[in-house]
Nucleic acid binder design. Structure first.
Length: 462
RNA sequence: GCUCCCAUCGUCUAGCGGUUAGGACGCUGGCCUCUCACGCCGGAAACAGGGGUUCGAGUCCCCUUGGGAGUACCA
């Protein structure tokens, strides 16, 4: 039997970090077992589903590289099948029409709660035999009253539910549309899904779904409920916890391989290893190494991984993304790939790379006050003058030459390199932080360096 | 409230009856150094509590406590 998994998001919101990890685990499981990974958009809630959300979900998955097999299935398009299943259940006595009004149900639940009981449909329409034509009705599944339903979960192990705890759930709304639990069962079966990998928030639905599989005479898939991801404060992930939509990580300069690696390690592990390429993930991932405990989202660790992958990246591969974030024309100044290379090991994301690259293409308009105060004193000016003289006299311009010149000037004046390097850095970049000074000067080019130093001296000394 | 799930450093985790309880992020001391980083060396830091079972329990069982999920004509 070839493995076939699915990711089934509802297009009612963005693809967030938790959904992305569910998709990743599901995808990894399929790829590891040389199976298939398919997509189903669960848009049966017509009120809240939007095309925009669907697009964002698909974009997010594409960005992460979680490719799916075949075309996405839109659940709403499968309504005829769902209704047919409901009719079958109705005919076989596994379901019945319920004419209770919402008000009636609300009151019932309210009363039960007041009695300290679990709110459950009490089955008052179960034995109704009349079928008033003019009254709206829903169809409910006739759930067994006795015995227990066992979920054999690949992550959590066996979980037993007392059937008496499960009430008769609605499978068809009064408007004739199917509800979630019915639709998943019918579709997972129709799509030949072998393994349902989803968030553990679905665990409580699973016994109901198993009962539906049985009633419909269908084979239930294997289930794997993976633990949820919580926000940094331990509470449920929500919009309050920073960038939740996966697309926001892209905008914030994160690399997809870093996000995948981080997400994979949230709940899954392979001994003491931390860094996994996509290929390694596919090779090593399995459900057996998935833990049961919910994890908190830790931005600091994601940052570390992102910095790691950023350092490994080929500069040319980052040019387009950085150019996007730069907001200045990089075609006139130094080669952007070389500038990126100089910034990779001192940045933790692409936004920082872009920020660090900007001065290469736009001369500073101001000099950071604090840095100027710290690094400029009366003795600085003679050093700069001598450096300038040296540059003018230089035949060729290179990083090595600049380095040697700085060294010579400093030695002659009996000061360490920082006394000259820092003022130079501030003059050419506007601040106290940049790639190594010799490399920075080489990248900028002799003319631009001279221009900036003169302008800086003029601005700061006068 | 009721049902279900979970519980090792601050965080992510290794551990699958006998370990000086390991790694990683973060934090921190030092080295390197023209800045910021990178890198290297070192440090602090955990088995939620209580009962069992066992020669022996972080590992198995029960209870407590603490988190979480579900409890819709949402998915």
């Amino acid at each position: 039997m070839t493995v076939r998994t699915r990711f089934a998001p509802s297009p009612t919101g963005m693809l967030h970090i938790g959904g992305a990890r569910t998709a990743l685990f599901s995808w990894l499981y399929a790829r590891h077992h040389h199976g298939e990974f398919v997509l189903r958009i669960e848009d049966t809630d017509r009120e809240r589903s939007t095309d925009e959300a669907t697009r964002v979900i698909l974009d997010g998955l594409s960005w992460l590289g979680l490719d799916w097999d075949g075309e996405p299935v839109f659940q709403a398009s499968r309504q005829a099948d769902h209704v047919r299943a409901v009719e079958q259940l109705l005919e076989q006595g596994h379901a019945y029409r319920c004419y209770c009004s919402r008000e009636e149900l609300d009151k019932m639940r309210e009363d039960q709660r007041a009695d300290g009981k679990k709110p459950m449909y009490d089955g008052r329409c179960r034995h109704r035999t009349d079928h008033p034509e003019d009254q709206p009705y829903v169809v409910r599944f006739r759930s067994p009253d006795t015995g227990e339903t066992i979920v054999r979960d690949m992550v959590l192990g066996d979980v037993a539910f007392n059937n008496a705890e499960l009430d008769d759930l609605i499978i068809l709304r009064s408007d004739g549309t199917p509800t979630y639990n019915l639709a998943v069962v019918v579709d997972d079966s129709a799509m030949a899904i072998t393994h349902v990998v989803r968030g553990s928030d679905h665990l409580n639905n699973t016994p109901r779904q198993i009962q539906l599989y049985e009633a419909l005479g269908l084979q239930a898939p294997c289930f794997a409920h993976i633990p949820l991801i919580h926000g940094p404060d331990g509470a449920k992930m929500s919009k309050r916890h920073g960038a939740v939509a996966i697309t926001e990580y892209r905008q914030a300069g994160y690399l997809p391989e870093a996000v995948n690696n981080y997400l994979a390690r949230l709940g899954w592990s392979h001994g003491d290893d931390e860094v996994f390429s996509r290929e390694q993930l596919i090779e090593l991932f399995d459900l057996e190494q998935v833990g049961k405990t919910a994890a908190r989202f830790d931005q600091a660790k994601l940052d570390w991984l992102n910095a790691h992958y950023l350092r490994q990246a080929k500069p040319e591969d980052l040019v387009d993304e950085v150019q996007q974030l730069l907001n200045v024309d990089a075609s006139q100044g130094p080669d952007l790939a070389r500038v990126i290379a100089s910034l990779q090991e001192r940045s933790k994301n692409l936004v920082e790379v872009a920020d660090g690259a900007r001065f290469f293409y736009a001369a500073p308009e101001a000099y950071q006050e604090k840095a100027v105060k710290k690094n400029f004193r009366d003795t600085t000016w003679p050093l700069l003058e001598r450096f300038l003289e040296g540059v003018e006299a230089m035949a060729d311009w290179s990083g090595e030459a600049a380095h040697t010149l700085i060294q010579q000037v400093c030695e002659a004046e009996g000061v360490n390199m920082g006394k000259l390097a820092q003022p130079l850095r501030i003059l050419v970049s506007g601040g106290p932080i940049s790639p190594p000074i010799d490399l920075t000067l080489a990248l900028l080019g002799r003319d631009e360096v001279l221009r900036r130093i003169h302008a800086g001296i003029k601005a700061l000394r006068d």
